[in-house]
Write a protein that binds this DNA or RNA. Structure first.
Lengths: 206, 206
DNA sequence: TAGATTGTTAATCGATTAACAATC
DNA sequence: TAGATTGTTAATCGATTAACAATC
């Protein structure tokens, strides 16, 4: 009875499709097809078509896909037809690099507040923002209705900070700490874990 | 006839198992079992046992696993019984944050050289190293026999730098750029793509 | 021995690929 | 129309889960 949910693994590929479409767009291309997309992504043409079919028919029989149209549809599906405000917690080396990174804003995410608990860092200017005392975390999230957080704090405080974020209304966390966060089912977490990635690759080396 | 290769998806979970074992070790625990590991990792006990079974029997019937022993075995399997030298290419905001991050060294990977092509950055001291001209990239990789690189350069030069790395002998690349690198089959690439991760999560937000 | 937990086999589930009718 | 490529169905492949004999 209930419609089958689109698999999460499919959702995870859509941002990759979108990036390739952005590239094609910048190259001035107006149409493409599942074979070309597959080649650029290292996936099969069949998978591209299957993935897209979860959301409807975006192509033209015999002619492929219009770059601008498919790009727009993917942006709509992923809820990227707006800029999402994001809070960044942690203004250490990594947090500062993230605050300065223009790629977030260019792709739909704007860091609108940065927090730290270190008095040495509070008040610092960072990418046009001022580092705020983490004491105001909840107040800012609630006032601005923010749903997305980037977590770049020491691992030992990661869970405690995540709990506060979630209590204040955060529903998606980009987790740069190696901690495995315990979160309710309606909160999404994506781990950025470079050490685990290196260890994974080391298996194949001699 | 040929033994079935352990699935890559299993290899990718071993670093997570290792991290939990390190935690248990630090907590002074001497034994654990598949159920506890599963709980800490958010996986089923059956999966833990199945994954480990690809490499042999590490547990004791009725008693679970010895933390120290299993940890050691995972380190051996992942080739972490040594420190892997790593080159870092790109000394921008992100590259500098990565150079300063102690987690690599603590978990088996030591950045031994940092490169950039910006004369303003060449010569800078960075985490005990001096930023070198990227012209010397091949010479250093070959001389030191380095197999792992971290790529933190602008996206537009990512493929060209990757080609040079591979030609010099690099066999694993931790790719911090959004470029989809084209590499031969014997070169491993792991992408760190925070924007794609945020876009993935945005799908579930309203 | 009885109790507990592993390691492994079989069953289930889900994702990818192949094939092709639909159709522009 | 003929040619091309989609969207979808069916077949294959692979991963996870469940169940239980093995065994300490």
């Amino acid at each position: 009875m209930s419609a089958k949910k689109t698999p999460d693994i499919v959702i995870g590929r859509l941002p990759l499709y979108l990036r390739v479409l952005n590239q094609l767009w910048e190259e001035g291309r107006t149409t493409t097809n599942s074979q070309e997309l597959g080649e650029r992504l290292g996936l099969s043409a069949a998978q591209i078509r299957k993935d897209l079919s979860h959301f409807g028919g975006f192509g033209k029989y015999g002619a492929g896909y219009e770059v601008a149209y498919l790009r727009e549809q993917l942006r709509r599906i992923l809820h990227l037809n707006r800029v999402w405000p994001v809070v960044l917690v942690g203004a250490g080396n990594l947090g500062r690099a993230l605050a300065d990174y223009p790629g977030f804003r260019e792709n739909g995410f704007e860091i609108v507040a940065v927090f730290d608990n270190d008095p040495q860092k509070i008040g610092l200017a960072l990418a046009g923002l001022t580092v705020q005392d983490v004491a105001w975390l909840e107040a800012v999230i609630i006032e601005k209705g923010i749903q997305i957080a980037i977590l770049a704090v020491p691992a030992r405080v990661a869970q405690a900070v995540a709990d506060r974020l979630i209590a204040a209304g955060i529903r998606a966390i980009l987790n740069y700490t190696p901690a495995r966060l315990k979160t309710p089912p309606d909160v999404r977490v994506q781990d950025i874990d470079p050490v685990a990635r290196l260890q994974h690759m080391a298996y194949y080396l001699e």
